[in-house]
Nucleic acid binder design. Structure first.
Lengths: 110, 110
DNA sequence: TTAATTAATCGCAATATTACGATAAATAAA
DNA sequence: TTTATTTATCGTAATATTGCGATTAATTAA
């Protein structure tokens, strides 16, 4: 069906999945890396940097913005995008906890 | 088109995106959490635990197995799935480096 | 005001993902 | 061998994602 049955899972599980989804495209990974590198950026930079069409980049930016990972300030005819540090920190926290599960005590296995 | 233009991105960017994709569904998040909790598991457990149909769970397990995050040992008529600790560790390393970008020195921004 | 610049949105096509019923394959038990 | 148990695979339907040309909206410059 193509529709995820979110109601079967916990809030935390859905949150982790949604964050992961935002990282699940190399263009969005590249955008985030570029924003960290530059610390401020306009969309046009990203189009030439990444090499996808302008509407495509705009769409990826929208997804990151919807999750709150980035914010955009209008500056003249262009938009200055940058990382939302607070959201990044809490996102990192959530994912790190998930990734650190392996540090818990474990019994023998197959 | 629905097809990701992977060739436009670095090996690392594609790796991060692929790992994120495997976490991008709450059922796979739940499967991994359950495997960590139990330390060994058969697929049947997961079907009743998670509440999706058996073919659906089997498909999610296959994706995690393809990435190497879990491994399955045949035991009689059932299969014992568990976390592949080595792969989990390197995966964690890659994602942690990505998430820790914010600890780098930053200039003022918008 | 008009023209130029930049980003967002619309609309569409192509591919991917999710879900599951039906079935097959593999093994164990009777 | 036959039957039961368990997991994998097939096939298909529905929805989601990706990508981009065309267009619109917003702002600045002339």
């Amino acid at each position: 069906m193509g529709i995820t049955k979110s109601e079967k899972f916990s809030e935390e599980q859905n949150q982790i999945a949604n964050i992961a989804k935002s990282f699940a495209h190399p263009a969005r990974v590249a955008i985030l890396q570029h924003l960290f590198k530059i610390n401020a950026c306009i969309c046009g930079d990203l189009v030439s940097e990444i090499g996808l069409a302008q509407p495509t980049i705009s769409q990826h930016l929208k997804e990151l913005k919807n999750l709150g990972l980035i914010k955009g300030n209008v500056e003249g005819t262009s938009v200055c995008y940058c990382i939302n540090e607070e959201v990044w920190t809490s996102t990192k926290q959530l994912l790190t906890t998930f990734l650190d599960q392996d540090s818990k005590p474990k019994s023998q296995c197959c």
